[in-house]
Design a protein around this nucleic acid. Structure first.
Lengths: 358, 358
DNA sequence: GAAAACTCGTGCAACGATACAGTAGTTCGT
DNA sequence: ACGAACTACTGTATCGTTGCACGAGTTTTC
């Protein structure tokens, strides 16, 4: 609430040193016209000035290397063209890949991206949204799986368009919220069916805390596939975890694997909630001398193809989703017809899911 | 240069719908005082108003859920407290970890971070710097290894403080530029010496294009360690690559490994320019049936401990470097004495560098 | 030949917040 | 009793840009 005063001094010192940046008035003076005329030129109203004037103003702008102050423009109501992107954890390669993909799609339409790291903390999520809002950013892609988005109401009420990613629509969602996501339930269903086809019957589900919308759906897909094949659900095969796991998913996966191997009737295959858990579980299994146990991941992060055995996984169509989101932010009405909001996953079979042998 | 006009309309429509956000005038009117008084309260000048007035103003602010417009404050010269961070590739787990680390250090001092992805493109680097500058951001951490930073002169002249990361100081650098980096040359020297101690004599260096300051230094460290041990340099052991490699380092590493294995006298150990190349090379070696060849990476990304064999690597002290950088941005004079600008790396020995057997 | 229309501009108020000068009204010192 | 000092505010100009109303001078129209 209370802030130290006196920052205007700094600006004044800069000016005394001659580090001043040119304003519209400087350009106007240099060109011998009024600021209004310069503004007219800048705002596509060139038709109401003489070509000679136009040229003089352009020369003055060039000479002073003038750039309009976006802060002043924003004060007048101009939007900040930047797209905000909030992710749970940049240290997690999946979110890094996602950010890179959205960057590419956004850049193709001439919009830059500010990426923010929420650490899955709703409070940080809120402060980043308000920070972006304070900077005039109009569109925010919120990669979150929190069931409720109430903490963002103030910003949404103020007109910030929020597009949620990795979070299928909930009943309690406000109507202006858009949700773009892969079909999580369908993805783990594919994964589990793949393991069933390879002869596995005792299949575990390895995950951090199942507290997000997407993880609930992934668990549901695993359960549906088992149920459809007449395999009874066994809670022992879904070890509980208190933490969500991002950079530390290695530790969590290891703990889950230890619990599974300690069972009287351990599983022959694992469905991991994502690739990071799959990699962690794989390392734990090899250390425990059970490299025979099959593992399938979810996300298809690039590293999955570099490790050995290469990871079988469920691919999220990141490129297509990124394009849809950027289109939604750029031309909402048009894009809402062209793109779905839930995208189909695909199975990527590699070496980590061998046929059951024993 | 020329932009579509008419955005003030949007604001007006919002206001008609009642979505108006409270301004300092609204608060003043509601509290029955002048805007100046509200401003005085906001700017730590409470001593010059009656306690009752103070209370009324605070109540009005609360009732209208007023937040000062930072855009207006910035127009008056207030700084944007956000820290800008530009990285070459968020899809690369090392840069993701670095961003997360800087986020944590920065958050501890109450400053948020805008992360920008440059794709190693100087032009993008420039537009992001100017974007951040346009938003009033005063401190930018530029994670780049480009030898020249001339493209950022305009912003630096305008007073934007740039702190370069992963780039040791160059002679041509302007004096106001700060460079924070790990001792790259010392790191690969450590790595190479470790392989020598394990009995290896024929050691290759696997990298993407060696076009950045940090990679040149890493190559130099490898060469120095060999020279110090009387091993002649062999260009065949440093396969050239046209691309730098980030998300695609798997492919590049594979190509390098193929070239090395085709030699008459192939290496028994590899020094990789970073962990991503090390992982890619490891996969390629296993596929080629040569899992016996030792590999050491650089960076110590979290995944390195999850793969098998776990990756021996050179750790960058990211936490310490992040703290130093945030301190430099927050209290420059103080921090310049407390922290070094070049940080020592440490060797992390795991399973991927066995003693030479044959 | 006067009104209308067009050309090429300028002046002004506003966006929201702020620093400083100014100004009533009260209290104090001598 | 009268200026000085204090308290508790307010008025105003400013940051850089913009849209609209206005205006002076020239050309066209009937």
């Amino acid at each position: 609430m209370v802030r130290a005063a006196g920052y205007a001094q700094r600006v004044r010192i800069d000016q005394e040193q001659g580090c001043t940046i040119a304003t519209i008035k400087d350009v106007a003076k240099a060109a011998g016209v009024s600021p209004s005329t310069v503004s007219n030129l800048l705002n596509a109203r060139e038709h109401l000035m003489h070509p000679d004037t136009r040229r003089r103003v352009l020369e003055a702008m060039e000479a002073l290397s003038y750039k309009p102050s976006r802060i002043a423009q924003q004060l007048r109501g101009a939007p900040n063209p930047t797209l905000g992107l909030i992710v749970p954890s940049v240290a997690n390669p999946f979110w890094g890949s996602w950010a890179a993909e959205l960057e590419t799609a956004s850049h193709a339409r001439g919009r830059q991206i500010y990426l923010c790291n929420s650490q899955r903390d709703p409070e940080r999520e809120r402060t980043y949204v308000e920070q972006l809002w304070a900077d005039g950013v109009e569109h925010i892609v919120l990669s979150t799986s929190l069931p409720s988005l109430d903490h963002l109401r103030p910003a949404m009420d103020a007109g910030v368009q929020i597009i949620a990613f990795d979070r299928e629509q909930q009943e309690t969602d406000p109507p202006e919220l858009l949700n773009v996501s892969v079909d999580n339930e369908g993805g783990t269903w594919l994964a589990t069916r793949h393991l069933l086809e390879r002869g596995h019957r005792r299949i575990a589900f390895v995950s951090g805390a199942i507290r997000t919308v997407s993880r609930r759906r992934r668990l549901a897909g695993y359960q549906r596939a088992l149920a459809e094949n007449g395999i009874p659900l066994d809670d022992d095969l879904v070890p509980a975890s208190p933490d969500l796991g991002d950079a530390d998913s290695g530790t969590l996966a290891r703990r889950a694997v230890d619990a599974l191997l300690a069972l009287d009737d351990p599983p022959t295959a694992l469905v991991a909630v994502n690739d990071m858990f799959a990699l962690g579980a794989g390392a734990a299994l090899r250390e425990a001398g059970r490299p025979d146990i099959a593992i399938i991941g979810f996300d298809d992060i690039p590293i999955g193809s570099l490790v050995s055995p290469a990871l079988t996984t469920v691919r999220q169509p990141l490129r297509e989703m990124a394009e849809a989101i950027v289109a939604l932010a750029t031309e909402p009405s048009d894009a809402e017809q062209r793109y779905p909001l839930v995208f189909p996953p695909t199975l990527v079979v590699r070496a980590s899911t061998p046929r059951r042998t024993t």
